[in-house]
Lab assay of single mutants.
Amino acid sequence: RERTTFTRSQLEELEALFAKTQYPDVYAREEVALKINLPESRVQVWFKNRRAKCRQ
């Protein structure tokens, strides 16, 4: 699998949801995934990595 490159608009959507909740449920992830045209699994991994970045 190729590394996913997020567009600015995708990142804005993801960061907006992250500001609301660092642990979105599957419904919130699927909703944003549809909105930004990415698989839910990519959204899930983005949140995992974003939380790790936050802890550093």
Rank of each mutant, 00 (worst) to 15 (best):
E12G: 09
R55T: 12
L34I: 11
T4G: 07
L38R: 03
K53F: 12
R1S: 10
Q44L: 10
S9L: 13
Q56V: 11
C54R: 09
R55F: 06
E31R: 14
E15S: 03
N37K: 12
L17M: 07
Q44G: 10
R50K: 10
Q22P: 09
N37Q: 06
W46T: 01
L34M: 14
E31F: 03
V43S: 01
Y27V: 14
F47E: 00
V32L: 12
A33H: 00
A16K: 07
Q56W: 02
R50D: 00
R1P: 10
F6M: 10
A19G: 09
R3D: 15
F47S: 01
R42I: 09
N49D: 11
I36F: 08
K48D: 14
E13N: 07
W46M: 01
E13Y: 08
E40F: 05
R3V: 11
V26L: 15
Q44T: 12
A28F: 03
A19S: 11
Y23P: 00
N49R: 11
K48W: 04
V26Q: 15
F47R: 00
W46S: 02
L38V: 14
V32F: 05
D25C: 07
R29D: 00
A52P: 01
I36D: 01
A19N: 11
W46K: 00
F18S: 05
P24L: 02
R29L: 10
K35P: 00
P24I: 02
P24Y: 00
E12N: 07
Y23K: 07
T5F: 09
R1W: 06
Q22A: 08
T7C: 08
C54F: 12
F6D: 05
W46V: 01
P39E: 08
K53I: 14
P39N: 06
K35Y: 01
L34E: 11
R55Q: 07
Q22K: 07
E15G: 03
K20G: 03
T4D: 11
T21W: 04
Q56I: 04
Q56L: 04
L11Y: 06
A16T: 13
T5D: 14
E2D: 07
L34D: 08
F47V: 04
R29V: 14
L38P: 00
I36M: 09
A33G: 13
A33W: 02
R42P: 01
L14G: 01
T5Y: 15
Y27E: 12
Y23C: 06
V45I: 13
R55N: 15
L14A: 00
R29I: 09
D25N: 08
L11P: 00
Q56E: 14
E31K: 15
W46A: 01
I36P: 00
A33M: 03
A52R: 11
Q56D: 15
R51K: 03
R29Q: 05
T4S: 10
K35L: 05
K53T: 11
R55A: 08
L11E: 15
A28C: 10
A19R: 10
S9E: 07
N37L: 06
E12C: 08
E12M: 12
R50C: 03
Q22L: 04
V32E: 03
K35Q: 04
R1Y: 02
Q10I: 03
Q10E: 10
R29K: 05
R55E: 11
A16N: 10
K20P: 01
Q44K: 11
L38E: 14
E13A: 13
T21C: 06
K48L: 08
S9K: 15
S41D: 14
T21G: 09
R51I: 04
V32I: 15
A19W: 06
A28D: 07
R8A: 12
A33Q: 01
K20I: 10
Y27L: 15
A28M: 10
R55V: 12
R51C: 03
C54I: 14
K48H: 08
P39A: 08
N49C: 08
K20V: 11
